[in-house]
Design a protein around this nucleic acid. Structure first.
Ligand SMILES: NC(=O)c1ccc[n+]([C@@H]2O[C@H](COP(=O)([O-])OP(=O)(O)OC[C@H]3O[C@@H](n4cnc5c(N)ncnc54)[C@H](O)[C@@H]3O)[C@@H](O)[C@H]2O)c1
Ligand SMILES: NC(=O)c1ccc[n+]([C@@H]2O[C@H](COP(=O)([O-])OP(=O)(O)OC[C@H]3O[C@@H](n4cnc5c(N)ncnc54)[C@H](O)[C@@H]3O)[C@@H](O)[C@H]2O)c1
Lengths: 217, 217
DNA sequence: TTAGAATGGTGAAATATTTCACAGGTAGAT
DNA sequence: ATCTACCTGTGAAATATTTCACCATTCTAA
């Protein structure tokens, strides 16, 4: 979501929305550690951002804290989950059952945070029918039918870059509204569709600008 | 040399640096397609950002285009690679040889974009010694020695969240300056260390704010 | 009961980032 | 040679985002 600023008619800046999941993650961590309350300054110290920013961000949605005391961790978690529409589990489809698709389907960290991978699709006949983590790999022939029947809104796209756009077009036509794209390519989609990008090389190339390379290699 | 401090007025915004790898990726795609020249408006259309922004971003580093003509794709690629210090291959270590570590080590998309995974570390004795994509999984006992001996600057962190901070501390102490963290946790590091985060759930939770959930589920 | 320290919410100020708009410059067609 | 359609780089303007600074409130401890 960093580069393509979708046409959000909303009052609240997208950059604020993008920080909420990070707050939520940190709060969940605190909760697991038994912390009952926290403050904007403690949270900010942990995340490397200013306390004022955290207070300002949250103030867009209501008054969740208490002067002198801070925030009740569990309560703030609950509020953030509501804001981000995580009060129900979102069913998710993975497209592409290669190395990455396998890793994603095997990952157990989705469910407690609001998502469940329930379908995996691939074109490869030797993959179709295999079971990963309890999920049977389906043929891409069944893609549209399944998306429409099950009202799938979110997909993880883990196919080779050359096929990413055409698969995206099919997903969008069938009704998917959010795609997390792992292929190293920019996707073109209608305004109402949300795209997230996950390209490790882009992030590494960002870092190398700041790192001095040894000349001995 | 200490007297020549980075001038704040000359300092290029980090947000600009972060877009350069995306420009580079799009340009490489165009080059593969046989395109010899492009323009800020064509690039912008592809990436969903304004042409003015692209021109402004590039203008921080020089004048790479030609009025009336646009940019020579291959030349701009070369310049961006230099700016991002991608003129040599960065050797990279993967920490954690689980599902994700395997996928990363098997991924052949790094090298042509400036990185090569050369080491994999894990604590699990049943994993150590196994070979993934030509790379032998090493014991974490060898971590510090290898980092120092090979001057490893960049690591991909794919261990469980509970171990992410302690492994990070070891990496930083040994000299690593850039870490791409896949664990769903915020890391605390010294200022000179660059951290990138890759948490698919954070991105999905950002999307769900904008997606209306069906009430039938 | 009171002093003192900590904290949230928030308008205003300060910065940062993006967009605008235009002065040149280029290329191809005729 | 001229016309037309494009293009870049950039100062200035417009927006967006972050930070500041302060009051009101809460808690603790003496
Ligand atoms: N493996 C990684 O760690 C990693 C890291 C970053 C990015 N990526 C990207 O993720 C994507 C997948 O990577 P991978 O390593 O799993 O590749 P892979 O080649 O192992 O798997 C790709 C899978 O997609 C399937 N596929 C091909 N065309 C398809 C289509 N039209 N519809 C549905 N499925 C199709 C293939 O049959 C295969 O199973 C690639 O775009 C890659 O660049 C992977
Ligand atoms: N699998 C995915 O698609 C996925 C997606 C998003 C995030 N993640 C995150 O990436 C990390 C790895 O995920 P995974 O699915 O590969 O998990 P995994 O359990 O399959 O693998 C973790 C590996 O790390 C090793 N390990 C444990 N402690 C270690 C230590 N101190 N030093 C070195 N190695 C150690 C384990 O032996 C194991 O091989 C986790 O933090 C997970 O939350 C994974």
């Amino acid at each position: 979501m960093a580069l393509i600023a979708p046409d959000k008619e909303t009052q609240i800046p997208d950059i604020v929305i993008g920080r909420l999941p990070v707050y939520l993650r940190a709060l969940s961590f605190m909760h697991q550690q038994g912390k009952r309350t926290t403050s904007s300054s403690e949270l900010g110290r942990r995340l490397g951002i200013s306390s004022a920013q955290i207070r300002k961000d949250l103030s867009h949605f209501g008054e969740f804290g208490k002067q002198g005391t801070g925030y009740h961790v569990q309560h703030l978690i609950k509020e953030l989950r509501l804001i981000l529409k995580l009060d129900n589990i979102w069913p998710v489809a993975v497209i592409g059952a290669g190395f990455l698709g396998h890793a994603l389907a095997s990952y157990n960290g989705f469910e407690e945070r609001g998502f469940q991978i329930r379908w995996i699709f691939d074109t490869d006949p030797t993959q179709i029918g295999k079971v990963i983590n309890g999920i049977t790999i389906q043929s891409m022939n069944e893609l549209e039918n399944t998306i429409e029947l099950k009202h799938i809104k979110i997909a993880l796209l883990a196919v080779p870059a050359v096929h990413a756009q055409s698969v995206t077009d099919r997903l969008v036509d069938a009704g998917v509204e959010g795609i997390l794209n792992y292929a190293p390519i920019n996707l073109v989609v209608p305004d109402h569709v949300n795209i997230g990008y996950s390209d490790p090389v882009v992030q590494l190339q960002h870092m190398t600008y700041y790192i001095n390379s040894d000349d001995q290699f």
